[in-house]
Amino acid sequence: MFSKDIGIDLGTANVLIYVKDNGLIINEPAVIAIDKRTDEPVAFGEEAYQMMGRAPEHIQIVHPMKSGNIAEFEMTRVLIRHFLEKALGKSLRIKPHITVCCKADTTRVEKNVIRQVLMGAGAKQVVMEEESKVAAIGAGIDISKPSGNMIVDLGAGTTDASVLSMGEIVSFKKTNIGGLHFDQCIIQHIRKKHNVYIGEKTAEQVKKGIGLVLMSGEKPNAMNVHGSDLATGIPKTIEVTAEEIHQALQLPIGKIVETTRDALEGTPPELAADIAQRGIILIGGGAWLPGIDTLLTEHLNVPVFIAENPLTCIAEGTGSLMDSIGKTWTRII
């Protein structure tokens, strides 16, 4: 029997699985719910995510990925095993060949951990590719030519800025600032200003609703936010404005601008000229923050565009890679 070819985007916030000839099959939160009384998993992915802030005390919500790396070995293995069974069938009788993406600065030890997790989850063989290259392919960029292309991945755990030419990474910078850090800034701001505690899911809703990177001349938007009064512990609803959330996000946004600038400044002049003409492509969930492309354009004097498929281009890039190069299972990094 032939093995299935699988591409995995193992992200801090989401796991995406691309099955060759079938497309994107899994796109779910990288979350697992554990019953602390038995140490057994009770829910995975989207189902576990819906339990956040609502589960009883004996249910622990675990995020096994931190800042783009595996933080909980066994929990990640169990989670990936579940998703593979969901994508390919419960028995996993035919072990898949897996292409997985890793950061440009991933160490050999970290790569070995990723490989061990995937092999333990049911993989027959594992190939690793650098995430920036795969993302560029998924975004429709031809990185094989001697010209500069720049990808900025605004992920949940990190922000990565990469310049590519002739299929290689020429300049790379990373900061451990991402969408989850934005959520924490919002939680801390509301706690400090309004004396109200909100959970991570509520903070994410605020970020998506009124998390403006740039303030327009129009009247700022606002939304009602539900939390717990820190003084009394009882539920409380407050109004939060886009302007105050904009101020709360200034520090992490500034770090993202700085990281992107550093990668651009470390680029050879000829390739930098290409980027100035072609622009920078944004991917990842943070690419949807209103105004982030305009803000980066203003600070870098380089046009910045959001990819057509910012959330899925890494997973789809693994599919394009498998289609173009066929079987590459002897190339184990």
Rank of each mutant, 00 (worst) to 15 (best):
A222I: 01
I238D: 04
E129L: 14
E129R: 15
L164D: 07
G179V: 10
P146V: 03
G178C: 11
G148C: 01
S216N: 12
T241R: 01
A156K: 05
G217A: 03
G211S: 02
V206N: 07
A222W: 11
K208I: 12
K208Q: 13
A248T: 06
V213M: 08
A231M: 13
P146F: 02
D183W: 00
H189V: 01
D160S: 07
C185S: 14
M128N: 06
S171N: 05
S147M: 14
K219Y: 13
E131R: 02
I238Q: 01
K133C: 13
K173D: 14
T237S: 12
V225C: 09
I238C: 07
K207Q: 08
G217W: 05
K236R: 14
P235F: 12
A222F: 12
L214T: 11
Q205L: 14
A231R: 10
A222T: 12
L249S: 11
D183E: 13
D183L: 02
K192L: 13
G209A: 15
A242V: 09
G167N: 00
I198A: 03
G211N: 03
M150Y: 05
H246N: 15
Q247P: 07
E129Y: 08
T175Y: 03
Q188L: 15
P146H: 04
D142F: 13
K219F: 12
G138N: 01
L251R: 04
K173V: 08
L180Y: 04
R191C: 14
I187K: 14
F172C: 03
T158L: 10
D153E: 08
P220R: 02
T237H: 00
Q247C: 10
S165W: 04
F172V: 04
L180S: 15
A156Y: 10
E244L: 04
Q250E: 11
I198T: 05
L230V: 11
I137W: 00
K174R: 15
S162I: 06
E218H: 13
N149Q: 06
I245R: 04
G157K: 06
V225E: 06
D160G: 03
E204V: 03
G211A: 00
H226W: 09
G155L: 10
I198P: 13
E131G: 02
S228L: 15
Q250L: 07
S216K: 10
H246M: 10
E129F: 06
G140F: 00
G233S: 09
L154H: 11
S132D: 05
M215S: 10
M128E: 12
